[in-house]
Design a protein around this nucleic acid. Structure first.
Lengths: 336, 336
DNA sequence: CTGAAAGCGCTAACAG
DNA sequence: CTGTTAGCGCTTTCAG
């Protein structure tokens, strides 16, 4: 919307200039075959001369389509969400639609904002712990296509996730192979569906192995929180032998805590994370790599299909993750 | 826009239900004082019962405002852009507007997409190397408020930047204090205004110190590129004593190259970066920290003011950056 | 092939 | 205080 003061040129101006009706301008512009070549040329010339740009608002209102997709996520710190959004943006933009983003990060008015977003798009993905199921249902009830990402399925909504359960099992199997039997888990399952899924897989693997399952030690998603929580945990007696952290930031904080307490990693303590952030390589931290871009891309694809009117069956998909073994979980001699 | 099949309820439905005119519904909803309390209650009740949500399209078309701001950036890899966008989103959303994002990353149709974005917002920020000045001018000429971020000023457009020049000088001063006289610069000034600014400061500082100024060694913005470029550079003779990299990813790649070539850091080679990404702490890499969130926040604030009609003088602002000294540039004994 | 005219959903004068 | 009535800019029948 041009700023006050400048009169934008409308389809009427073009029609006047070209000596045709607005209907003809509209047709010519959208390449309707029912326009004589000569007429089309006249219109196009006028358009060019006047530097006319159709109003999206007018168009959208008339066709009842925003040609835009939204995405709601907790925040943008750490590479995880940024990557997902990048994958999302890439496919959405490629199909000529716009991308609206909304970070809720514990903001009080998240609900209002999600609802507002819903009024500006033809579909939206809602990630992890952002708003209550009730809000999601309200949005979906309005008839808007919604896909859930890194969030437990709700009703008949499409949902795509990373395979937290399986990767947690792989991780635990690897640690068990190292001979560790005394575990601890740093992360709050209540804080995010991903963390919950990871803890569930962790627990199941330990149960199957007949190893004691520790309660999770709640901890926020950043280095500081991981550091503080790990200090408390490692000061206890007996300290755990293997520390599974809900994500890399937390693990990085734990590593620092261990360093400060003079606890050698991996000799006396194994530490693992999730996400494979760049710093993990330098830590060097054993972690789990996830197909973040693809999560976003899949969600975007589904949304566009639904926006085009597809009402195929509910889709659910779990994308594979895989273990990235580095030295923080123990020394390796060629073997895994 | 609800999917085909569901008839959204309009202001007419509510008016009918409440037994008033649509004008009254509109007034009641926007809290006009010129509505009797009883009438307002009736309307609000109808709204609630029918779960009515005003159409943004209708509103926007009527008031001629999108209540949205856009931001154009090269890509979303690395924490830099993500942080800027986060700072931007935070203030934009807090003021009840939506955020549209557009990553150009060398896409061929960037221009078309930027122009399209321009038609959906009341203002937009354009970052770094995304589209030609000509496109920016075209957008601004349409009357849309534009602020340039991490990009050289154009015409009378507001512009905000990080202080690349000054931080480069500080960095070089620090390296000179270490006694280094043989420098190399890894990064392509033509690839981004930021890199150009950093190189300019680097060059100026060396010139002032009477130290030979190396030509920049062009290199993309990622670890792989830094690695490859550094390998070539370090294999040359004589190898440089201090390697200033355009950003942390490049520096991280250079660090790896040095490791592979058996060149001890910092004993035989000093390496520095820019951005202070999380991995830098673990590298551990001397780098420059920038006020990324604030860049976004400042741009957002300016845009909102302009969107509200402020036509104050052109604003230009350079936000300070500061050196983060770690061990990759040499050993420090309490002294800087 | 082209034009007239009816909306899309809402806001904002302008009358009462 | 409330209702009528123009639009906002564009798409899309429906006639011709």
């Amino acid at each position: 919307m041009p700023a006050a003061g400048k009169q934008p040129i409308t389809i009427y101006d073009v029609a006047g200039r070209a000596g045709v009706s607005i209907a003809t301008v509209s047709r010519a512009l959208r390449g309707s075959p029912a326009v004589a070549q000569a007429t089309r040329d006249k219109v196009l010339a006028a358009v060019k001369e006047m530097r006319y740009r159709p109003s999206r608002l007018g168009q959208s209102l008339a066709v009842g389509q925003h040609a835009a997709s939204g995405i709601v996520f907790p925040d943008l710190s750490g590479p995880y969400y940024a990557e997902v959004i990048l994958g999302y943006e890439e496919v959405v933009a490629e199909l000529g639609r716009s991308v609206l983003i909304l970070a809720t990060h514990g903001r009080p008015h998240a609900e209002r904002k999600v609802l507002d977003l819903a009024g500006r798009v033809d579909g939206m993905v809602i990630m992890g712990r952002t708003v209550d199921d009730q809000v999601v249902e309200q949005v979906a009830a309005g008839g808007l296509p919604v896909v859930l990402l890194a969030r437990p399925p709700i009703g008949a909504l499409d949902a795509v996730n990373a395979d937290n359960d399986n990767s947690a099992r792989q991780l635990v199997a690897h640690l068990l192979a190292h001979g560790y039997r005394d575990f601890a888990y740093l992360g709050d399952p209540a804080a995010s569906p991903d963390v919950a899924g990871r803890y569930a897989g962790f627990r199941a693997a330990l149960v199957e192995a007949g190893v004691p399952v520790p309660e999770p030690v709640a901890c926020a998603f950043d280095v500081e929180a991981g550091h503080a929580a790990a200090r408390g945990l490692l000061a206890g007696f007996p300290p755990p032998r293997a520390l599974v952290c809900a994500n890399d930031e937390v693990a990085l904080g734990a590593l620092r805590a261990a360093g400060e307490l003079g606890i050698a990693v991996p000799e006396r303590l194994a530490v693992t994370g999730w996400d494979d952030v760049m710093a993990a390589r330098y830590a060097p931290l054993t972690t789990v790599r996830q197909p973040m871009r693809e999560l976003g891309a899949v969600a975007a694809g589904w949304l566009l299909e639904r926006a085009r009117g597809s009402d195929s069956a509910v889709r659910r998909r779990t994308l594979g993750s895989h273990l990235v073994v580095r030295s923080s979980c123990g020394r390796h001699n060629g073997a895994a």
